[in-house]
């Protein structure tokens, strides 16, 4: 017997009428805007691609793309710029989602980084990120000749992103010039580029972290289990909890992995991603924890700590 039928009787006609007059919710408006942007890119840009990082923002992007083009399959491939240092659970998720939603999946690993064995332990987080991600992304975009790449960046993440346009223009060298971005009025996007230039497009620019979580909750979007709390082997290093995801992680003297109930608020390369101690094992509890917490999302990601305005600098160099 279906319990929900008893507890949730059909709405009466009068209620339907009042629903009719109801304003769109903030999530409905955000969803409509993101879909409009994706359709515009597909209609006007040559060779679009969606950058896929396997994180929660990427999960929302995939879901929006599936909705935007339904019943067609999204008319562009997914590109994962891999570092070989992601969590195992992320690789599993990547394969599963691409198959489930019918995307073509491209995985790119910078051959130079591969040959030199670049890793966060021997080369440090800055070099690791620069060579695998920044350089890898440029190489991949050049290799496939993508004219437009969807990214999941949001304006609430960091100060310099608050001024980023939805369509962000890059020179043939992939450089971002903050002085030369195009004004975006109404819902009109100028997508014209010269040969060699490319566009990064951020359809979820106007979403906040809370919006993302609420949407994942409402729409039942699958996410990597690492976001949920579980007993995991971690070591505490320089004040951060690092998960020992595989045996490539060199342990320092006196370090022994201990099992702790932890989860991740943001996902990247496992040696560079700090876990938080938590017992939040459902989406509502994750959201609850997020709302009551006192540190901002990106603190778990080490890339921001290097220097003031470092994201802005990285962006000028071609990193998202």
């Amino acid at each position: 017997m279906n319990v929900s039928l008893i507890t949730q009787p059909q709405p009466k006609a009068s209620e339907v009428a009042s629903l009719d007059r109801a304003m769109l919710t903030h999530l409905q408006r955000l969803e409509a805007e993101s879909i409009q942007i994706m359709r515009e890119v597909v209609s006007e840009c040559e060779r679009p691609v969606m950058l896929y990082s396997v994180g929660k923002d990427s999960a929302v992007m995939l879901h929006l793309a599936a909705k935007a083009f339904y019943p067609s399959k999204p008319p562009f491939p997914l590109l994962h710029v891999d570092t070989t240092w992601k969590f195992k659970a992320m690789y599993e998720m990547r394969e599963r989602m691409a198959k489930q939603l019918g995307f073509e999946l491209l995985v790119y690993q910078n051959p130079d980084a591969l040959a030199r064995g670049i890793n966060p332990f021997d080369h440090g987080s800055a070099t690791h990120t620069d060579i695998w991600k920044t350089e890898g992304l440029k190489q991949a975009l050049d290799k496939y000749g993508f004219g437009a790449a969807f990214g999941g960046a949001r304006r609430d993440e960091e100060k310099s992103r608050a001024k980023e346009r939805i369509f962000s223009f890059r020179s043939a060298q992939h450089r971002w010039d903050p002085k030369n971005q195009r004004p975006e009025l109404w819902r009109l996007y100028n997508t014209r580029i010269n040969k060699g230039e490319s566009i990064r497009v951020f359809p979820i620019s106007n979403w906040t972290e809370l919006d993302i979580w609420q949407y994942i909750h409402l729409e039942n979007i699958p996410i990597v289990p690492l976001y949920f709390s579980a007993e995991r082997p971690v070591v505490e290093r320089d004040g951060t909890l690092i998960m020992v995801d595989d045996d490539r992680m060199p342990l320092r003297d006196g370090e022994t992995p201990m099992m702790k109930s932890v989860r991740f608020r943001t996902l990247g390369c496992y040696p560079l991603t700090g876990a938080v101690e938590s017992t939040a094992d459902t989406l509502p509890r994750i959201i609850q924890e997020m709302l009551l917490t006192t540190t901002s999302e990106r603190q778990g990601r080490m890339i921001d700590h290097d220097q003031a305005a470092s994201m802005e600098k990285k962006k000028q160099e071609g990193y998202f």
Partner: peptide, 27 residues
């Protein structure tokens, strides 16, 4: 709310910046 490094030094806002907040009733 002053975002880009260049303008932080100049002490003026030079571009449109988008900010987000919400209350119990609205985003």
């Amino acid at each position: 709310v002053d975002g880009l490094a260049a303008e932080r030094e100049q002490g003026i806002t030079i571009d449109v910046a988008y900010r987000f907040f919400s209350t119990d009733r609205r985003k």
